[in-house]
C-alpha cells in the first residue's frame, strides 16, 4: 500500500533546538489527521518538511511518492497548503488574489469564482483583501489551498481566530475534502473541536510524536475514566449515595447532583445496575474523557507508544 504522505524517522534540528525529532508516520487517501501539540511542539516545522521548505536533518520525507524538496511541479500541483497566519497583499481584491493562484497552479479557468462561491466570499470578491475580516482572510486562504482539488491538504492552525460557526463550516469542508479522497493534515492546539472532525490524532510534544491513533483508540490506551453525573429529585442524593454504597471519590455538586469518575469496567458495571428497577436518580450524563485530559495524560509520559 502506498501512502500520500510518508515520514521515516524524520528530524529537523535548528542548532540545539530539536524542532522535529525522530518522527515517523504515514497518511493514506481520505484520512483526516490532526497534528496536536502546544506552541513550539514542531507542528509547523513538520508541515514545512512535507512542503520541502525545510530540509530534514535526518530521515526521509515522501509526499505523493516524491521527495518534496525536489520541488517537482506535478507533485506541487496536487498539494494544497494553508499557512499559519496566512496573509495576502491588501491592495488586491479577493478575486484577483485567487485568480493569480489559480493560474500559478494551472487550475481550471474561472475556478476562482467557483471557490469564492463555495466559501461564501462571492459577495466580497471585488473588495480589496485589506478590508476583509480575519475570518474572510482565512476562508480566502482555504480557497487557495483547495485549487485543483488537491490530493494532499496541509492546513496549519486553520481555525485560529474563527468564530464557532465558521469553525463548523470549515470542518464541514475539510470532511468533504477527506470524503473525496484527499489526505488532510491539520495542525491545532484547540483540542475540543477535533471531536468528530479528525479521524486520527497525532500528538506532538517537543518535536517528538508521543501518541498516534483515533480518538477512541487513544482513549482506550489511556484508560481514562468517564465522568458520570447523576441527578436526583430535590434532596435525594443521600438515598442515592446509600444505594451506591458510598463509593470513594464521589463528588457532591449540589443538593441534587453528584458526580464520579468511572474506569471503563466500573462504568459497565454501574450501567448494568442502574438499568434495573428502583435506581434512585432521575437523569444521567456521561462525559467521555476529552482531548484535553487525553493530551495531559500522554504528556505526563505514562504511556509512550
Amino acid at each position: 500500500m502506498s501512502f500520500n504522505v510518508e515520514l521515516k524517522s524524520v528530524a529537523r534540528h535548528y542548532g540545539p533546538v530539536r524542532a522535529v525529532d525522530d518522527v515517523s508516520f504515514s497518511a493514506g487517501t481520505g484520512e483526516v489527521i490532526a497534528l496536536v501539540g502546544h506552541n513550539g511542539a514542531g507542528k509547523t516545522t513538520l508541515i514545512k518538511l512535507m512542503l520541502g521548505l525545510a530540509r530534514p536533518t535526518a530521515g526521509s520525507v515522501a509526499v505523493l511518492g516524491q521527495n518534496p524538496a525536489a520541488g517537482d511541479a506535478s507533485v506541487r500541483r496536487r498539494l494544497g497548503y494553508l499557512p499559519e497566519n496566512v496573509s495576502f497583499n491588501p491592495a488586491l481584491t479577493g478575486r484577483e488574489t485567487l485568480r493569480f493562484y489559480v493560474r500559478l497552479k494551472g487550475g481550471r479557468p474561472k475556478e476562482e469564482d467557483a471557490l469564492l462561491e463555495r466559501l461564501g466570499l462571492a459577495h466580497a470578491a471585488d473588495r480589496r483583501v485589506g478590508t476583509y475580516s480575519k475570518g474572510m482572510r482565512q476562508r480566502l486562504g482555504l480557497a487557495q489551498a483547495m485549487i485543483g482539488t488537491p490530493a494532499v491538504l496541509l492546513l496549519d492552525e486553520p481555525t485560529t481566530g474563527l468564530d464557532p460557526e465558521l469553525r463548523q463550516q470549515f470542518y464541514g469542508i475539510v470532511r468533504q475534502m477527506g470524503a473525496a479522497g484527499a489526505t488532510v493534515l491539520l495542525c491545532s492546539h484547540a483540542l475540543n473541536e477535533l471531536e468528530g472532525n479528525a479521524g486520527r490524532v497525532v500528538i506532538m510534544n517537543e518535536g517528538r510524536k508521543i501518541a498516534d491513533g483515533s480518538l477512541d483508540e487513544l482513549r482506550h490506551i489511556a484508560q481514562l475514566p468517564t465522568k458520570i453525573r447523576l441527578k436526583t429529585a430535590e434532596d435525594g442524593t443521600r438515598r442515592l449515595r446509600e444505594w451506591m454504597g458510598e463509593p470513594a471519590g464521589l463528588r457532591q455538586i449540589n443538593g441534587h447532583i453528584v458526580e464520579f469518575d468511572a474506569t471503563p469496567e466500573a462504568k459497565a458495571a454501574f450501567l448494568r445496575r442502574a438499568a434495573g428497577e428502583g435506581a434512585p436518580f432521575v437523569d444521567l450524563d456521561m462525559v467521555p474523557p476529552g482531548l484535553d485530559e487525553l493530551y495531559a495524560h500522554f504528556l505526563a509520559g505514562r504511556i509512550l507508544r
Partner: peptide, 14 residues
C-alpha cells in the same frame, strides 16, 4: 517576513 513567500513557494514555482 509577511509570510507570503512560504505560500508562493508551496506552488509549482521555482
Amino acid at each position: 517576513d509577511r509570510g507570503t513567500m512560504t505560500l508562493l513557494l508551496s506552488y509549482p514555482v521555482r
